[in-house]
Computed example of a mutant assay.
Amino acid sequence: MPLSPELVAFLEKSRWPSTLTAGQMDRLRQDIYERAYPSGAIIFPRGSLADHWFGLIEGMIKVDTVSPDGRSTTFAGVPGGAWFGEGAVLKNEPRPYSIVAIRDSKLAFVPRTTFEWLLAESTSFSRFVIDQLNWRCGYYVALIENRRLREAPARVAFCLSELFNPQLYPSTEPTLRLSQEEIGRLSGLSRQNTNRALRELADAKMLAVEYGSVVILDLPRLREFARQDE
């Protein structure tokens, strides 16, 4: 089946496909496919088999888990243009988290057999995956530090600025279609504390709060503020 124009454009904008040989690209085009999910859909529940690597063609998803007592913890938000899920695929184990669409989203699926074949056949693809893992590890270390040591405004600044990580999320637009409740979940804060933090960041002209979205006005300052005590 021919690839959709959206998937073709997504692959062209991604860094790694252009480094593949013609034969490797033919295999990718043959095996990759896409699916659409409405906002709120559970794309994969916790414990599902990690048999695909994902690309988020458009939309936004969150990676989260729910404790036995019903408390939800969001580990990361993933904006459109990103590739993710390589860790669980490499370990070949059930996913320790859920993947949930927080906007209408369209995903590209690369089967694990194709992913592993590309790792074995393409040095450049292997380098890309190593870089992904390295940056993602750094993100989670910073996330733990941020949630344990930072005040609410810095925590919100961190979660928003990390959506513009140049390696993991290279295509993020300045307008983030996230509600204050969603930002609170990404930051590990109550809605009330999130609201106060956003007002402080808006007063400092780092961002503007609009209905159902946040517009990033000064990303370098937002990043600096998130790490001001380091």
Results as ranks from 00 to 15, higher is better:
70 G>E: 13
70 G>N: 12
71 R>D: 10
71 R>Y: 07
72 S>Q: 15
73 T>Q: 12
74 T>R: 12
74 T>Q: 13
75 F>D: 13
75 F>Q: 08
76 A>K: 14
78 V>G: 14
80 G>N: 00
81 G>S: 06
83 W>E: 06
83 W>C: 14
83 W>Y: 13
83 W>K: 07
84 F>W: 08
84 F>Q: 06
84 F>G: 13
85 G>F: 05
85 G>C: 02
85 G>Y: 04
86 E>G: 09
87 G>Q: 03
87 G>K: 09
87 G>R: 11
87 G>N: 05
91 K>H: 14
92 N>E: 10
92 N>K: 11
92 N>S: 06
92 N>A: 11
93 E>K: 15
93 E>P: 07
93 E>H: 12
94 P>F: 00
95 R>M: 02
95 R>V: 01
96 P>M: 00
97 Y>T: 02
97 Y>H: 10
97 Y>F: 08
99 I>S: 02
100 V>L: 13
100 V>E: 07
101 A>Y: 11
102 I>A: 00
103 R>N: 04
103 R>A: 14
104 D>W: 09
104 D>E: 10
106 K>L: 01
106 K>P: 03
107 L>H: 05
107 L>K: 07
108 A>T: 02
109 F>Q: 12
109 F>D: 14
110 V>S: 01
110 V>H: 05
110 V>D: 04
111 P>G: 03
111 P>Y: 03
112 R>M: 03
113 T>G: 02
114 T>Q: 00
115 F>Y: 01
115 F>N: 04
116 E>W: 06
117 W>T: 04
117 W>K: 01
119 L>I: 03
119 L>H: 02
119 L>R: 12
121 E>L: 09
121 E>Y: 08
121 E>P: 06
122 S>E: 15
124 S>W: 04
124 S>T: 13
125 F>D: 07
125 F>M: 13
125 F>H: 12
125 F>R: 05
126 S>L: 13
127 R>E: 15
